[in-house]
Design a protein around this nucleic acid. Structure first.
Lengths: 123, 123
DNA sequence: GCACATAGTGTCAAAATGGATACCGTTAGT
DNA sequence: ACTAACGGTATCCATTTTGACACTATGTGC
């Protein structure tokens, strides 16, 4: 168990109080996790339904991000034994508990970014 | 090219409503931004004071992250014409407005992962 | 016997990110 | 003359992340 007690090297969580910020961030960070989580707030979605909602994500990336979210226990993956395949993704309880965080991010974005990006200006 | 901000990150925000989530995320994302912001919630800090609070950050990285935060208008940088130099960092108004978000991240972290990280264990 | 649909995998290469280390400029102290 | 203090830069390199693109499996419809 590589938790706080590791003597010489600390992996992520045993630093200053600010660490839980970084730790939480590390879960929802990854180019598409935020949006994925956001869309799943609305309910269960199939793989291709998510793709439609996030047109720029590639198949590989989507699979990837979904897998990471699953490993971190934020989403549940349900496979139906059908052909063609059907796989549904939904928030786990843990994922659902992130709702406040996701919405905080969204609200701040809506209020302070009002749908354009300051860093784009020079491009 | 080791410049300040990375335009390749999330420059195109033309996706769905969930985009403000990613957009906000892209601002506080970066290995140390979350913690930096968190520490600045307490008030103005000098460069080396931040370093002391975040022992693992290298000088280069700290400069880097601070620059990005500055470019994104989240922090203010105040240079005193002295020798040796004195540079103070503080939250801008925009940065201060992120307080709720930072705290949401911290609270979730404290409550839901309280020092247990799934991805760290089985290496 | 071919294409279509869904939900993937595999491989390679480019790009972004992060770490290590050394250097810079000014002035005060010894 | 040399060193320390502070807040950086510059350069090089390793690791990680992401993108492009091709490939897979299988049952159905034509």
């Amino acid at each position: 168990m590589d938790t706080v007690s590791s003597p010489g090297r600390h992996s992520r969580l045993d630093c200053s109080p600010g660490c839980s910020v970084e730790a939480t961030l590390s879960l929802i960070d990854g180019k598409w996790k935020g949006v994925i989580l956001f869309h799943l707030l609305d309910g269960t979605l199939r793989f291709n339904e998510i793709r439609k909602r996030i047109p720029d994500v590639t198949q590989r990336m989507l699979t990837n991000q979904l897998r990471e979210l699953e490993v971190d226990g934020l989403i549940a993956r349900r496979v139906y034994a059908q052909v063609p395949p059907k796989v549904e993704y939904s928030l786990s309880e843990r994922g659902r508990s992130l709702e406040a965080v996701i919405l905080a991010l969204k609200h701040w974005g809506d209020a302070h970014l009002h749908l354009f990006h300051p860093r784009d200006s020079a491009a």
